[in-house]
Write a protein that binds this DNA or RNA. Structure first.
Length: 472
RNA sequence: GCUCCCAUCGUCUAGAGGCCUAGGACACAGCCCUCUCAAGGCUGGUACGAGGGUUCGAAUCCCUCUGGGAGCGCCA
C-alpha cells in the first residue's frame, strides 16, 4: 500500500510570485490532490536582509487567488508548525547540537576574506571551488580555545568519505553524485542562523513531506540535503526537479528583465482559471488540448508527464486561455469581473446588462472602457475606416435611418426591413454604416442588441451626426 | 574554470528504432458561415540545432561540437 502523499510549496518572501513558482505550487498542489494527499505551505523567511512580511502576504494572496488552498500552513496549523522558518530556530538548534556531538559537523573559523582567497585560487587553477577543510582538522583543544576567545564560528557539515550519493529524481530519473566532489558546507551561519539547505531539508522531514517538486536550480544541491537527512536519521522525501520557466526571449525570468508576476496578471484582469489552464500545460503534457475546469485539474495531472526541457512563458497562449475563461463567465460573473471599470453611477442591473452584451468581445476588463462610452457617453472622433464607410453611405441614407428610427424605435429587424426598401441597401452595405455611425468601430456585439442598449437620444444624435459627414 | 542538466514547428508539446512523406494545440494565412469582431467549420505553410557513428532501418541509441540553463555562497 502506498503511503499518503504530502507535498509542499516553500516560497521565500523576497519578491512577488512569478509564473514559474506559481507553476511549481500548482503542480505540488495537484500532485497531492491527485493522490488524495495533503498540500503544505511553508514560508522560508530565514533571509532577514531581503525578506519582508509584505511579500509573504502578497504571495499568500496570490496562491489563494490561484485557488491553491493548503491543508497546513500559516494560519492553519496541523500540529507540525509553525510554518514560518523564522519561528523554527529552536528546532534546528537541537539538530546542530546532535551533529556536533556525533562529530558530523565542526566549527569553522575561516573568515569571508580567507574563503574568498581560497576560492579565487582554485578557480584560477581550473578547479571547482570548494571548501578545503581547513578547520576540519583542528584539534579539540584549539577549537575550544578559539571558541573561548570568542572567535566567530560557523558550523560546517563534514562530508563523509568516498561514496556515491544516489537518488531517483521524479522527473530526471536516477542520479548519482560522488560525495568527494562536494565540499564541507555551512549549515549554521556565524550569526547562528540555519542555512537554506539545512532548514529546508529538516523541515520537509519534520512536516512529513513525501514528495518535493521544486526548481531545477536545486538539483545539484540535493545530495547535500540527502547527506544531512541521513546524518540526522531523518526520512528523505522523493525529489522532482522541474525545468526553469523562461521568458519569451529564452532568458530566465527575473524582476530586472520585467518578467510578469502573478500579481500583475491578476490586476490586469486575467482570470485564475485561465492562468491555471495555461500553467497546467507548461512543461507538462498530461492534460488534453481543450479547456479544463479547475476542479478537474487534479484528474489531468500526471507526475510522470512532466517535461525535462525548459518552457517559455508565452503571453499569446495565456490570452487564448483567458478568452476561453471569459467565455465561460455568466453575465453576473462578468459584471463582477468588470467591477472596477464601470462608470460609478451605473446601477447593478445596467452593469449586468452591459456585461451580458459585451461578454463575447472582451479579453481584459480594460477593453470594456470604450464600450461604456458607446453605451452611455460620447463617441471618440471618427477613425478613417469609420469616416469613409459613413461618407460612402451618404447623408441621405442617415436622414432616412433617423426618420425610420423615430417610427420603429430600437427594433432593428423592423428598422432594417424598412431601410432596405427605402434605400435599396442591404447586407453589409446596410449594416456597416449603421454600426459605424452608432459605435464608431467595426467590431462588437450584434447590432440588434447594441441598438437596444444605446439610449434613444444618443442613437438619434449619432445618426444625425453621421448625416453631416461629408465625403472626401 | 569545474560539475551537472536541457535541445522536435514562432510558442506549448506528442514521439521511449520501423506505425513519422513527424501528430495535436496556440499563433499565422486563405476559404466557408456571418452586419462586424469573436466563436465554429475546412484548408495551408512552418520543426527533429550541426557533424560523425551504431543499425537493414534513427527524431528516437552512442560520440563530438554548437546553443541555452543550473550549481560550485556564512542567498534562498
Amino acid at each position: 500500500m502506498e503511503l499518503a502523499v504530502v507535498t509542499r510549496f516553500a516560497p521565500s518572501p523576497t519578491g512577488d510570485l512569478h509564473p514559474g513558482n506559481a507553476r511549481t505550487a500548482l503542480f505540488s498542489f495537484l500532485l497531492a490532490r491527485s493522490r488524495g494527499g495533503r498540500f503544505v505551505l511553508r514560508v522560508e523567511d530565514t533571509d532577514r536582509e531581503r525578506g519582508s512580511d509584505d511579500f509573504i502576504a502578497a504571495q499568500i494572496a496570490d496562491l489563494a487567488w490561484l485557488d491553491l488552498p493548503w491543508d497546513a500552513g500559516p494560519g492553519r496549523d496541523d500540529g507540525r508548525g509553525p510554518y514560518r522558518q523564522s519561528e523554527r530556530g529552536h528546532l534546528y538548534a537541537g539538530y546542530f547540537e546532535r551533529l556536533e556531538r556525533e562529530g558530523l559537523a565542526y566549527p569553522c573559523f575561516c573568515t569571508p576574506a580567507e574563503l574568498d582567497v581560497a576560492r579565487r585560487q582554485q578557480l584560477s587553477a581550473g578547479e571547482a571551488p570548494r571548501y578545503l577543510g581547513t578547520c576540519r582538522s583542528l584539534s579539540a583543544s584549539v577549537r575550544a580555545e578559539r571558541l573561548r576567545a570568542g572567535h566567530p564560528a560557523a558550523l560546517r557539515f563534514a562530508i563523509p568519505g568516498p561514496q556515491a550519493i544516489e537518488f531517483d529524481d521524479i522527473v530526471r530519473g536516477p542520479q548519482s553524485v560522488e560525495a568527494a566532489s562536494l565540499g564541507d558546507f555551512v549549515v549554521r551561519r556565524t550569526d547562528g542562523g540555519a542555512v537554506f539547505f539545512f532548514c529546508n531539508a529538516v523541515d520537509d522531514a519534520l512536516m512529513g513531506i513525501t514528495h518535493v517538486l521544486r526548481g531545477d536550480d536545486h538539483l545539484s544541491n540535493t545530495p547535500r540535503q540527502l547527506l544531512v537527512l541521513r546524518a540526522l536519521g531523518l526520512p528523505a522525501p522523493r525529489y522532482g526537479h522541474l525545468p526553469l520557466l523562461l521568458d519569451a526571449g529564452g532568458a530566465p525570468q527575473s524582476k530586472r528583465r520585467g518578467s510578469v508576476t502573478i500579481a500583475e496578471l491578476r490586476s490586469r484582469g486575467y482570470l485564475p482559471a485561465a492562468v491555471g489552464n495555461y500553467l497546467l500545460r507548461l512543461g507538462h503534457h498530461g492534460a488534453p488540448d481543450a479547456w479544463i475546469d479547475p476542479p478537474e485539474f487534479a484528474g489531468h495531472f500526471h507526475v510522470d508527464k512532466l517535461g525535462r526541457a525548459p518552457a517559455h512563458f508565452d503571453a499569446v497562449q495565456l490570452d487564448h486561455w483567458q478568452r476561453e475563461a471569459v467565455r465561460r463567465l455568466d453575465a453576473e460573473a462578468t459584471a463582477g469581473w468588470l467591477a472596477g471599470e464601470f462608470p460609478a453611477d451605473w446601477a447593478a442591473s445596467r452593469r449586468v446588462a452591459a456585461a451580458a452584451l459585451l461578454r463575447g468581445n472582451l479579453l481584459l476588463p480594460g477593453d470594456a472602457r470604450g464600450w461604456f462610452e458607446i453605451l452611455g457617453g460620447s463617441l471618440p472622433p471618427l477613425a478613417p475606416d469609420a469616416a469613409s464607410a459613413i461618407a460612402e453611405a451618404g447623408p441621405a441614407f442617415f436622414d432616412a435611418a433617423l426618420a425610420t428610427y423615430s417610427e420603429t424605435g430600437p427594433n432593428l429587424t423592423l428598422l432594417v426591413e424598412r431601410l432596405k426598401s427605402s434605400t435599396g441597401r442591404k447586407g453589409k452595405a446596410l449594416y456597416m454604416p449603421l454600426r459605424f455611425a452608432l459605435t464608431g468601430r467595426h467590431d462588437g456585439p450584434e447590432l440588434a442588441s447594441l441598438l437596444a442598449a444605446i439610449p434613444q437620444a444618443l442613437v438619434r444624435d449619432r445618426l444625425a451626426g453621421a448625416a453631416r459627414v461629408q465625403g472626401s
